[in-house]
Amino acid sequence: MQITLHLNGTSHPLDVDPRTTLLDALRHHLGLTGTKKGCDHGQCGACTVLMDGRRINACLTLACMAEGHDITTIEGLGTPGNLSPLQQQFLDHDGFQCGYCTPGQICSATGMLEEIAAGWPSHVSDSLDGPYDLTHAEIAERMSGNLCRCAAYTNIVAAIRQAAQGTREDAA
């Protein structure tokens, strides 16, 4: 079927089988291999992208259902010469070992920081009334949909915390 994906600010017409997931459309049809396939069942978070600014699992989304939505992948967040704050902090804090989960971690953290800014509570929040501090417990809970088999979690948490503080300082 003919669809058009709005991806990283550009429209891409595609001819896809209805079974094609957004993840496979990105990697196989559009050659954007930054988004990774781990489990392909929504359990590992390696395929996390942003749809209308919200983090989702691209492996559990049909490409044809993503039509009309704005999709942002890791390629759309920053470039080697113009890294996003989270990308920079993952480098500065060595927030990876093999790097396979990193695009998903960064897309997920990008969406998560927006959720925090919007005052969304989490399972570990003491109160349902925000705002919420980015404690270790809050970051661990809010990022639990992203696994890292190298267990670089300590540095991932540090990178996210630093990026969030930078964002707040910019806002102030």
Partner: peptide, 9 residues
């Protein structure tokens, strides 16, 4: 329940 990504969908 679930993860941040799944709750968004």
């Amino acid at each position: 329940g679930a993860s941040g990504q799944l709750r968004n969908m």
